[in-house]
Design a protein around this nucleic acid. Structure first.
Lengths: 153, 153
DNA sequence: CTAAATTAGTTAGCATAGCTAACTATATTC
DNA sequence: GAATATAGTTAGCTATGCTAACTAATTTAG
């Protein structure tokens, strides 16, 4: 009985620590990756949106905004930036002229994949001190996080 | 021999996927947590800097900038914002009047801990679908990530 | 002991990225 | 056909990142 109580308290403390760790680790990781991503000449929001287009295919603006958890005006500006750099092409939907269809251009796909390679090389060089097992456990942890993000409310 | 080659290729593919997953998961997690953190009335950069002060004690501006991996002008502005809200107190170093000593005020410490509680409750409510084992594995993955961040180059 | 060089921080100015409110243009409904 | 609803855009605010150029204080050279 006392043991159950202790475990509950322990779990609470762990969740608290886990939340803090997750927040802090995510912030510091992104600060470092951002420096690499800047070498592509585009900011993180643009690269993330482009990634959705490259891996998920064409999207309307509202779909893209929802995927990126951002409001339409914000996505409108992100897409405008990508279009100015010719990384995406924007066309009207013939069925409904209010909608726009946003597609990655070959240039956009190429840039994303180059950035991805650069990021991987950078990350890999920093993860290589980890043992094969640790890398596997990290990957496993990320998958659990992804699952939690998918079922977020 | 061929098997070793396959394993290397496999490792490369895994690193690539791991890097992408990590990037994407970090971005999407922070977008969600940001909404909670905004309820404190302060942005993520300020909260993160405040957290360093609360858990790491007083710091000079340069120390804080290094801890947060940003340039001094950026940290200068973050501290100015925190000081305006009376969340930190700034004083000159008597030994070296160029340096400033930045400390969390009781109000700052309180706000951080309230935000932390809110974030934990939010995270916990979203992580509660995970099994106890999954939560433990997630925590383990984060610790590996933290280790990698500590040894970053 | 002053003059030059270095160091710590700030200020100014630019870009990205988030938001809400208010607008335009197109579709839908009554 | 007029009112309403929906998809995006524009305008304007805040926060956060940067570099370049500045001020003030300390340290070092001569």
């Amino acid at each position: 009985m006392a043991k159950v109580k202790e475990e509950l308290a322990e779990l609470g403390t762990q969740s608290l620590r886990t939340a803090d760790q997750l927040h802090s680790a995510a912030i510091h990781l992104l600060r470092r990756l951002r420096k690499q991503d800047l070498l592509t000449g585009e900011g993180p929001a643009r690269l993330s949106a482009l990634s959705v287009l490259v891996f998920g295919g064409p999207k309307t603006l509202a779909e893209l905004a929802a995927a990126e958890q951002v409001k339409p005006p914000t996505m409108s500006r992100i897409v405008a930036g990508l279009a100015r750099s010719r990384l995406v092409a924007v066309s009207r939907d013939p069925q409904d002229a209010r909608r726009v269809r946003i597609v990655s251009t070959p240039k956009g796909t190429r840039l994303l994949q180059q950035g991805r390679r650069r990021r991987i090389e950078y990350l890999a060089s920093n993860l290589e001190r980890l043992s094969h097992d640790e890398l596997e456990e990290l990957r496993h942890g990320i998958e659990i996080l992804e699952k939690a993000l998918r079922h977020w409310r």
